[in-house]
Design a binder for these strands. Structure first.
Length: 952
RNA sequence: GCCGACGUAGCCCAAUUGGCAGAGGCACAGGCUUUAGGUGCCUGUCAGUGCGGGUUCGAGUCCCGCCGUCGGCACCA
């Protein structure tokens, strides 16, 4: 206890003051009671948690969901629960507004930290994970979150990952039907091949293909498949990682190790098949534009054309978004990794090219992407034919063309593309003009209008009349916009078989396997011929085998040519297994990869709905009740969670993967919702001051002394302040335990909700917390005698002014709570309480309404007050107050009168005064007359009930 | 460079979506309570819509152009 302690331990406080000690007593008692009563259990329409009577009693369903946390060992700081408190307030409010609310919390518990800890300590990750989960549950319970604890799950529970494996099998045994634009079971594909409705490979019929050929065709269609492809190999982690997990500078987002592109055999998920739907269905979602933009950007759909250029090495296909500029193509550029490079390389150029390729390969991706770099490249010595005019154009290689995008080859149009322009200038290549830029373009560059591109300082990009763009069959000359030019060119390309309109995506298939221990094993075994088989449902879950050595073999960070070795590979007793998969008992080899961290979070919200179901991952009737489309909101409502709250950092990882899996499950008929999360809300972060000493090392923020004006010091040494996300790494975390100790959970909740809008990041200021504490103390004092603990609420009716204020407050608070604007709701409630403080005694009607309005925000103190007022039921399901419309309007109102837009007087008039009456009253006001100074009004604007503006 | 969000008082933030710039909290000053510090209570002060233009009777709000902050993407053809 410090000397500045403000708790009940100070001897002079009245014994029934709302102090932190009393708050803690109240909070722990109610948390215990809610748990033992199952207060927040939500009824299901069917299955083990079914309670049809309760369903009938409650109103419409509401699914409120938090992004579930990773159960870290270090515990929570006050920045973590911001979103959780927000969802809890909302869930509690909606329960009181009559909704049947489902709200719980699970744990996303597979992943690297637990595994790394296990490697260090030798403790099995399941042990530490479960301990961390228990600790986190305790911390969340201390906040008073109204979770239905029966529904809490962990992704690491075998009964949970059994269904993660089952869903994987569903994905594996499905293919994407491009015509139907949806996934279908793989059996239906086989049936179509067998019936001859679909051509598998070549002119041979299905029955003529060998078994191996058939398997290959089928595997080529699966939504989960093994492929030998360039992947991100991270020697420092000993595993491959997904594109989404590689940072812009070519390192792993976990651990920050270098990542190398390598060809390896790995599991992939065909998320690219869903690229269009993942973009298009964003329209149906109530998400912020920022997140939608990030997803669109990540998927990177661009419309364009593929164009074929003939060369000595064969046809070089390029992707371009500007086929209309084909007449301006004066050279081609291939990525150094392009497969045709060797063939194209002239004998005299071979050494030069080999040297350039080697140099390019030595560079990391991120180095090649530094666009401030000067262009480099090498001429191959070969030429290709421009299909529109038969011109022979030189073929170069350069590292500004990336093998990973489009076809790895481009047609260079230097007059219309800044990169090609730069390249052409550097290597003195032709820059034919094909558009006449508008005069303004030349003016801005202090040039006369000219088509002599030697005078142009840069490429022209945009709409402008085409010139020099015709051949015998085709002319763009005279057209003025590119949409038209593209349409004409695409038609010609298709007519002459020189190319076709196409759509290109940045999105790549999802690399789904990891060579680690602490993840879901694949439900896959391989037969003697190496063909993969999914295990039947009866053999799930495939449990992680016990072992002492959890670590994958890791390598030197820069050991690019090392190879992954999964920990499961070492467990040969587990790997080799005798099974009867229908063809008699045979020996199979298990897959030794595990799934990535993101697998378990792709569907967890559905397990909350039906957590104990052993027959299926979620009963369809239960899924439809909680997640089915809400067509009363919008006719094309996609279904899904009604409110999903979490940080913006999952914009392209979890949120993209989860949408993809959900759509597969939708296509296969397992769920009624097209999308998992109908409404997404991104909470802000709590920031805190962090301090660095002169060595640029962070020092413990709590030990820093001084002020902004006087300067900050740590141990007498000057330190510099900066702002950052609260956390361990910046040494600026504030523990919730300190807040409970000093104020209690209700004050902490209220402070976090009051400090700003839920979606805004804001700095934590411990010294500000006391404001909310004082508010709760006043609230308590308005209803409880601090000396005796007796209830002081009186049964007399409130006076008119108080009654009106009460109902106006109710009106605003209801609206604000519903819109997640808790900060403004709190301000109104403080205002009301301040008014009540001035009364001689608090009328019961006011007290009870205040308790009900505050119950979602500060559930413990309100339960206690509700009881003191003589009720013996929980306030959690008491109806939220509704304003009496009659009390929202005043008989008379004060209206400002402006003269030329400046307020010069105020008039008090009847609230329903019409225009003429208002105007007359305004013109009669003394101050207004004075302000007019005898000038006759030119115009009088009256907004009835609002204001008057007189223009002179 | 492109995309997105945001700039209101010493600080965190409101402003019925075009209508009186200030609701709430912190800080600050004075007073009461207290042996004192702290707690608690009462009263009070000051000052501001990033900059420049436009639309309007009226702009924090809408439009145009800058400046700044944060986030995402980036040699994506």
């Amino acid at each position: 206890m410090s000397e500045t302690d403000n708790t009940a331990h100070s001897a002079n406080n009245p014994s029934h003051r709302y102090t932190s000690a009393l708050a803690q007593t109240i909070e722990l008692r109610w948390q215990q009671k809610w748990a033992s009563d199952g207060t927040f259990n939500a009824p299901n329409p069917a299955g083990p948690l079914a309670d049809p009577a309760a369903i009938a009693e409650r109103g419409d369903k509401l699914f409120v969901l938090d992004m579930f946390p990773y159960p870290s060992g270090v515990g929570l700081h006050v920045g973590h629960p911001l979103g959780f408190i927000g969802t809890d307030v909302y869930a509690r409010f909606q329960r009181m507004a009559g909704r049947n609310v489902i709200y719980t919390m699970g744990f996303d518990a597979f992943g690297l930290p637990a595994e790394q800890y296990a490697v260090q300590t030798g403790t099995h990750p399941a042990v530490t994970t479960n301990a961390n989960i228990e600790n986190m549950r305790r911390q969340l319970r201390r906040l008073g979150l109204s979770h239905d604890m029966r529904r809490s799950v962990s992704t690491t529970d075998p009964e949970y990952y059994r269904w993660t494996q089952w869903i994987f099998s569903q994905v594996f045994n499905a293919w994407y039907d491009e015509d139907a634009e949806r996934a279908r079971p793989i059996d239906e594909l086989v049936a179509e091949f067998e019936a001859g409705d679909r051509v598998a490979l070549d002119e041979r019929s299905w029955s003529e293909l060998s078994l191996a050929e058939r398997n290959e065709v089928i595997d080529d269609h699966r939504l989960a498949y093994v492929s030998e492809a360039p992947v991100n190999w991270c020697p420092g982690l000993g595993t491959v990682v997904a594109n989404e997990e590689v940072t812009a500078d070519g390192r792993s987002d976990r651990g920050n190790f270098p990542v190398f592109k390598r060809n390896m055999r790995q599991w992939m998920m065909r998320i690219t098949a869903y690229a269009d739907r993942l973009i298009d269905d964003l329209e149906l979602l109530d998400w912020t534009e920022a997140i939608k933009a990030m997803q669109r950007n990540w998927i990177g759909r661009s419309h364009g054309a593929k164009v074929d250029f003939e060369s000595s090495a064969g046809t070089i296909t390029v992707f371009t978004t500007r086929p209309d500029t084909l007449f301006g193509t004066s050279f081609m550029v291939l990525s150094p990794e392009h497969p045709y490079v060797d063939e194209l390389a002239g004998l005299d150029k071979a050494d030069e090219i080999a040297a350039y390729r080697k140099q390019a390969a030595a560079k990391k991706d991120f180095e090649r992407q530094d666009d401030t770099r000067e262009k480099t490249g090498v001429f191959t010595g070969a030429y290709a034919t421009n299909p529109v005019n038969g011109e022979q154009i030189p073929v170069w290689i350069a590292d500004y063309v990336l093998m990973g995008y489009g076809t790895g080859a481009i047609m260079a149009v230097p007059c219309g593309d800044s990169r090609d322009f730069e390249f052409a200038r550097k290597f003195d290549l032709a820059i034919p003009a094909i558009q006449t830029p508008p005069p303004a373009w030349f003016e801005e560059r202090s040039l006369d209008v000219t088509l002599d591109t030697r005078q142009w300082p840069e490429a022209f990009v945009g709409d402008a009349p085409y010139v020099n763009s015709s051949n015998g069959e085709l002319s763009l000359d005279g057209l003025v916009n590119k949409a038209e030019g593209i349409a004409v060119m695409n038609a010609w390309l298709e007519r002459t078989n020189a190319g076709e309109a196409t759509i290109n995506y940045k999105l790549r298939d999802w690399l789904f396997s990891r060579q680690r221990y602490w993840g879901e094993p694949f439900p896959i075994v391989y037969d003697a011929d190496g063909n993969p088989h999914t295990l039947p449902d009866s053999m799930l879950p495939v449990e992680l085998p016990e072992t002492e050595s959890f670590s994958p073999r890791t390598f030197d960070d820069d050991d690019e040519f090392s190879s992954p070795e999964s920990p499961l590979d070492r467990l040969q007793d587990w790997v080799n297994v005798e099974l009867d998969l229908g063809d008699g008992v045979q020996i199979y080899r298990r897959d030794t990869n595990v799934m990535p961290q993101w697998a378990g979070s792709c569907w967890y919200e559905m397990r909350y709905l039906d957590p104990t179901n052993t027959e299926t991952f979620c009963d369809p009737a239960v899924e439809e009740y909680w997640m089915g489309p809400q067509t009363h909101i919008r006719p094309d409502h996609p279904g899904g969670v009604d409110l999903y709250v979490g940080g913006v950092e999952h914009a392209v990882l979890h949120l993209l993967y989860a949408r993809f899996w959900h759509k597969v499950l939708f296509d296969l008929g397992h769920v009624s919702s097209k999308e998992p999360y109908a409404r997404l809300f991104n909470q802000g972060y709590i920031m805190a001051a962090a301090f660095k000493d002169e060595r640029e090392i962070y020092v413990e923020a709590t030990e820093v002394e001084g002020s902004e004006d006087a300067g900050f010091t740590h141990d007498g040494q000057p330190v510099a302040r900066e702002w950052g996300k609260m956390g361990k790494s910046l040494k600026n975390a504030v523990s919730p335990d300190e807040m409970y100790e000093e104020y209690g959970a209700d004050t902490l909740r209220l402070y976090e909700m009051a400090m700003g809008p839920l979606d805004a990041s804001r700095p934590w200021e411990t010294r500000d917390v006391v404001g909310m504490y004082r508010f709760l103390q006043r609230l308590w004092r308005n209803m409880v005698d601090e000396e005796t603990g007796a209830c002081t609420v009186v049964d007399t009716a409130p006076d008119d002014a108080t009654d009106k204020l009460l109902h106006r407050t109710i009106d605003v608070v209801r609206t604000e709570m519903d819109a997640l604007r808790f900060n403004t709701a709190i301000a109104k409630l403080i205002e009301l309480n301040n008014a009540v403080t001035k009364l001689d005694a608090t009328p019961r009607a006011v007290a009870e309404a205040m308790i009900r309005m505050l119950a979602p925000l500060v559930p413990h103190i309100t339960e206690e007050l509700w009881r003191k007022l003589g009720h013996d039921d929980t306030v959690a399901y008491i109806e939220f107050p509704t304003a009496d419309p009659a009390l929202l309007v005043d008989d008379t109102i004060e209206v400002p009168v402006q003269v030329n837009g400046k307020v010069r007087g105020r008039i008090t008039i009847s609230a329903d005064a019409d225009r003429a009456t208002t105007e007359a009253a305004a013109l009669a006001d003394e101050k207004v007359i004075a302000a007019l100074a005898g000038n006759a009004p030119k115009k009088v604007i009256v907004v009835p009930g609002r204001m008057v503006n007189i223009v002179v």
